Computed example of a mutant assay.
Amino acid sequence: MTLGITVRLAAVGQFLPEIPEAVMPKSFRLRYRGVRGRIPLNVRLPGVIKTRHAVVHITAGQVRDAQASSIIVGGQSLMQDFIYNLGDADVWISNVSPHGENDHFPGEPGGVEFILHVDYPDPLDVAVTICVDDAPPVSISDADT
């Protein structure tokens, strides 16, 4: 059975909020070595995720060591010494939960909590890419079921 979801705007003919043209998502890549099972994680991204309304996408995949390669981003050289590897493990992310500054306790920076799943009998190296959109959602409502 497929669940159909309808998103309603507050009023018919209402314009969506204006979004600046130069909106660019920010991506962060993290490697976790020797993981397996169900791993709850909390990645703090102060100044990037400021509210629980942040739009966050997360991907994960098995990786293996490789010769280092670099790219220049914003005048900064970023080095990556692994490549993604389509192995035999099932690797996925669930329960993506952005949180804003001070949402859980005073002084807490904004960030995102999620579950990393590595379904394989042996520990593996896995990379996670977190992508945070600059723009907030254009609509927030309950889903019609």
Rank of each mutant, 00 (worst) to 15 (best):
T2H: 12
S94M: 03
N85A: 11
V91T: 08
S69D: 14
L124V: 08
C131M: 13
G87N: 02
G107K: 14
I115P: 01
D65V: 00
R44C: 05
P136H: 08
P46D: 00
D88I: 02
V63P: 03
F82K: 04
T2P: 09
R64I: 03
K26H: 08
D119C: 01
V48L: 03
E108I: 14
S69K: 15
V35Q: 01
L116C: 05
T59W: 09
N85T: 07
V7K: 13
L9F: 09
V43A: 03
P46C: 01
H117E: 05
V126T: 02
L3N: 13
E101L: 09
G4P: 05
S70A: 13
R31C: 02
C131I: 11
C131Y: 08
G74S: 02
D81H: 05
D134E: 11
K26W: 12
K26F: 14
Y84T: 10
F28M: 01
S69T: 15
A66P: 02
L16I: 06
V35K: 00
N102C: 11
F82L: 05
D144P: 05
Q62H: 09
S139R: 12
V43H: 10
M1C: 06
A89C: 12
I130N: 03
V7Q: 14
V23F: 13
P40G: 09
V96N: 07
D65G: 05
I19A: 13
V132W: 03
K26V: 05
Q62G: 05
G75L: 10
R33E: 02
I93E: 04
T51L: 10
D81P: 06
P109I: 06
V56E: 01
E101G: 01
P137G: 12
S97K: 15
S69G: 15
T51R: 13
R36K: 15
H104W: 15
F15H: 10
H53I: 07
A89M: 07
A54D: 00
F114T: 00
L78R: 02
A127Y: 01
R33F: 00
A143N: 09
D142G: 14
D144R: 12
T51A: 11
A54H: 07
V118S: 03
I19E: 13
R31P: 01
R8M: 06
S94N: 00
I115N: 04
A89D: 07
P106C: 08
A10W: 02
G87K: 00
V132T: 01
D103S: 07
I130E: 01
N102M: 13
I83G: 14
G75I: 10
D103N: 07
E101K: 11
G37V: 09
A10K: 04
D90I: 15
P121F: 07
G47Y: 12
D88P: 02
F105P: 00
Q76R: 15
L86S: 14
S94D: 05
G4N: 10
E18S: 08
R29H: 07
G107D: 12
Y120V: 07
I39F: 13
V48M: 01
V56D: 02
T6F: 14
